[in-house]
Amino acid sequence: MGLLEAIIISVIAASTPLLLAAAGELVVERSGVLNLGTEGMMIMGAACGFAGAYFTGSTLIGALCGIAAGAALSLVFAALTLGLAVNQVAAGLALTILGVGLSGLIGAGFVGERITPAPHLYLPVLTGIPVVGKILFGQDGFVYFSVALVVAIWWFLYRTRAGLILRAVGDSHTSAHALGYPVLKIRLLAVLFGGGCAGLGGAFLPLAYTPFFIPGMTAGRGWIALALVVFSSWLPGRLAAGAYLFGAVTILQLHAQAFGLGIPSQLMTALPYLATVIVLVLISRARGSAGSVAPASLGIVFVPDR
């Protein structure tokens, strides 16, 4: 295996949890809801995903448990922000506190346990192709799913009527409501979808990446996922680019250290964050004031007038 190939495989793996969680959040924000609880939903997904796989021995069931856990937590958020018109920022942050605590309680019994990691695809001839073989045909299911998810979200948002309605709800809930669309119901579905995706992104960590559970193992990836949604300007394609950019800089700085370049490690560690900021500034500058911007109703509570 060549070094380049190895690096690309590592980059894809490092980016996948970010991409999964961010893809869900993108849909949520497109519907006009800002759920800052991604970190909490991810870590819940990690804890419950590990528990599911531990008891059943199945990665798939583990992944489903992760999705369910993330969605369940997001339901709490939905009940508050959609049902009771609570401020979304505060509710999202409170959700993170709750998720971190709950996952710690759930996961306490699993610390020190291990499971078999998710299997990687292996196709006799294709996987053996030099350079691209393992990259294209040698990943685990989460990786393929994350790519499919982004494509599906793009297709949904821009090629289906339901996607159009969802965007309309996010851009102006009052107009959408006036047109007779069930704003809150659409947002509920979006929030649940986002919760499921975050849960899956979290579950990826103990199921495929590092097959064990430790409290807090998401280590802030939920925040990065949130930032990536902003980075993407709410566009699915750019979201994938952002996630892979972040993953790539993360991995490359480790390789640069192993080569012994002698640059302060703090600077190297800061590179992924700096890179995203700089690229975002460059994109924004090139785009000028036109281009895609945040959904207009993002973060604003909606209470239908009857």
């Binding site: 295996m1 070094l3 190895a6 690096i7 590592s10 490092a14 949890p17 960590l205 990446y209 590092t210 064990f212 430790i214 807090g216 193992m217 280590a219 990836r221 993360t250 991995i251 480790l254 390789h255 250290q257 192993a258 080569f259 012994g260 490690s265 703090q266 190297m268 560690t269």
Partner: peptide, 24 residues
């Protein structure tokens, strides 16, 4: 070869560092 990850605790990043070392 030494890689500084600047954290005591981030399993994903520790794994990334281990992969980078193995790849080299």
């Amino acid at each position: 070869k030494v890689i500084w990850v600047n954290t005591w605790f981030d399993p994903g990043k520790e794994a990334d560092a281990a992969k980078a070392l193995a790849d080299q």
